[in-house]
Design a protein around this nucleic acid. Structure first.
Length: 274
DNA sequence: GCGACAG
DNA sequence: ATCTTGTCGC
């Protein structure tokens, strides 16, 4: 019988998909840029003394995230928000509720989450929206990733946008561990700031851990996405942190959850029946 | 074999 | 990611 030798367990199909995905990641990674590569400049907070400086300032900072239905784990809401760097107010938001076919597999988050987020970016670009982000902050890692190509890199390359990856938990890579980082932060308490490089066993620095708020002991993990240096990434994060999580991502998180709750489930059923 | 594993 | 209440504190 043919069935006897059939290789169709979930496990084997997953591993073959992974091989395909690894190739895709390595292919896209060849287009990755790990340095500052943009036309705008970071705003300086002097009182107009340098208003004659050339070029546009960074002002429109995007943030993306997904929230999931508690009832149906395959239902998700992707959110794209844009924040005005001058006051951290949200000046744009858009949502898309989708049914995800692809499960979450560590190291392959982009294949699950990137499509809906790219769609939201593309829609804004097609409309030539004036607030189209100059920089995108992503809920997920950049090069802090087993193959140096996390969701933030994936989105950056695909959308050709400068991106920064923000992890709320450490993806263990190259010997880096959450507890190890915690110890380093505690040892650093006096001298350096609340910011330590994430240098692994191989001596490669994958990003930085940062205590973004006075009150928070738990750091966030910043890594390069695309076309932004770590130094610039850290500066932007500092400019956008009212709370532990940078405002663009925090707002995308809050609003996507909110949108999902208001547009699905019982609330939506009630609305439809009236 | 065992444990780890962004969201 | 999501399940989950109150609670301590500025």
């Amino acid at each position: 019988m043919e069935n006897t030798h059939e290789i169709s367990t979930a496990e084997t199909s997953l591993s073959s998909v992974n091989n395909c995905w690894i190739e895709a990641q390595e292919s896209l990674k060849r287009r990755l840029i790990l340095e500052d590569d943009f036309t705008w400049r970071l705003p300086t907070h002097d009182n107009g003394l340098e208003e004659n400086a050339r070029g546009e300032k960074l002002r429109y900072v995007g943030g993306v995230d997904l929230s999931f239905s508690k009832d149906d784990a395959s239902i998700a809401c992707g959110a794209l928000v844009v924040v005005d760097l001058e006051n951290l107010n949200v000046i744009y938001d858009d949502f898309s509720v989708v049914r995800l076919q692809i499960p979450y597999i560590p190291g392959f988050l982009a294949f699950r989450e990137a499509p809906v987020l790219l769609e939201l970016l593309e829609k804004m670009k097609q409309n030539a929206h004036p607030f189209y982000p100059q920089l995108l902050m992503v809920d997920g890692n950049g090069i802090l990733h087993p193959r140096g190509f996390g969701l933030a890199c994936h989105l950056g390359v695909m959308a050709n946008l400068p991106t920064i990856g923000i992890g709320k938990n450490l993806h263990h890579v190259d010997g880096l561990t959450q507890s190890g980082v915690k110890e380093l932060l505690e040892a650093n308490e006096n001298c350096a700031r609340d910011l330590i490089p994430l240098t692994g066993n191989s001596d490669y620095t994958w990003g930085v851990a940062m205590r973004s708020t006075e009150g928070s002991l738990k750091p966030i993990f910043i890594s390069i996405g695309h076309r932004v240096s770590v130094d610039t990434a850290v500066k932007v994060v500092k400019m956008t942190c009212k709370y532990r999580v940078p405002e663009p991502i925090r707002q995308a998180d809050i609003r996507s959850r909110d949108y999902l709750q208001k547009h699905t489930g019982v609330a939506k059923l009630m609305q439809n029946s009236q």
